[in-house]
């Protein structure tokens, strides 16, 4: 457990004032709720992470959610709507690797360059390029960045959300510092990509049991340094199995090379 950077006592005050739900039931929305009521202003970088740690700490002797917690959650907080569920980015241990979304002059410049590639009345075409810019700099597509893209192109935010949720290439949660995309399609599977994935998970301590190919493909290691995901054919079947690590392409990765692959980046 990471040492906490601000006095926990303040948090105890919070929890005595309002009942804090069990961490399992906590998502972003609820964290915001707690923050709203918090008597202290948590003004440190990565405040959200620290809050999470604080909550973990508070509930460390408290393995199962109590009934009241759930009821409290139900009573006081509206269920997130479909839109909220699709737009919100859940925290992951990888969140620590990326700066929060911020509009910088550099980003604006790049965005304008991209928009100029399309006819003036068709700027919606730049949705994908702008999202790529965002993802490249901030690791994933956050609700704030969706608003920014929509503003920039003068379209309704839903038109950006539909794109983000459709394409597997856009992430809605932070990956690790090293993001592995292992090809799982036929030729690579024959070459052993499933074993490669198993080896990668074993080495990095990633638990893939919760991963769902469609809705939630990315699994992040507890340390936040690594994340894995299955990709479909990466168009290099002749050198199977293959894998993308961030933007680098690696081929001929038989499962026994998993260790070297990771070492290559950590060396």
């Amino acid at each position: 457990m990471r040492p906490l950077k601000f006095p926990l006592t303040d948090f105890f005050k919070v929890s005595s004032k309002i009942e804090v739900p069990h961490p399992r039931a906590i998502d972003r929305k609820r964290l915001e709720y707690i923050r709203l009521y918090a008597p202290v202003k948590v003004d440190v970088p990565n405040a959200r992470l620290i809050e999470r740690d604080a909550l973990r700490y508070l509930f460390k002797d408290h393995p199962k959610p109590r009934r009241n917690d759930r009821e409290l959650v139900k009573r006081d907080l509206p269920e997130p709507s479909v839109l909220e569920k699709n737009v919100l980015s859940p925290e992951t241990p990888g969140s620590i690797n990326f700066p929060p979304f911020k509009i910088t002059p550099e980003l604006e410049k790049k965005a304008n360059q991209r928009i100029a590639q399309y006819p003036a009345d068709q700027s919606r075409s730049a949705v994908l390029p702008l999202l790529h810019e965002v993802q490249h700099h901030f690791g994933f597509i956050s609700p704030e960045s969706i608003d920014w893209v929509a503003d920039k192109l003068n379209i309704a935010p839903i038109k950006v959300v539909e794109v983000v949720t459709f394409y597997p290439g856009f992430r809605q949660k932070a990956p690790g510092k090293l993001h592995f995309r292992v090809c799982r399609t036929l030729s690579c599977a024959m070459g052993g990509s499933y074993e490669l994935m198993a080896r990668l998970c074993e080495i990095t301590g990633i638990d893939r049991s919760g991963a769902d190919g469609q809705k939630d493909p990315i699994s992040v290691s507890p340390c936040g340094n690594y994340s894995v995901e299955y990709a479909e054919c990466l168009a290099s079947c002749g050198t199977a199995p293959v894998c993308l690590v961030n933007d680098d392409f690696h081929e001929g990765l038989t499962p026994d090379k998993a260790k070297d692959l990771i070492a290559q980046y950590n060396g």
Binding site: S125, A126, L128, V163, P168, E232
Partner: peptide
Amino acid sequence: AAAYICGEETGLIESLEGK
């Protein structure tokens, strides 16, 4: 953005239009 169906020519066009 990693979708196979973007290879289909009309799907590709829709994608290029930002949809």
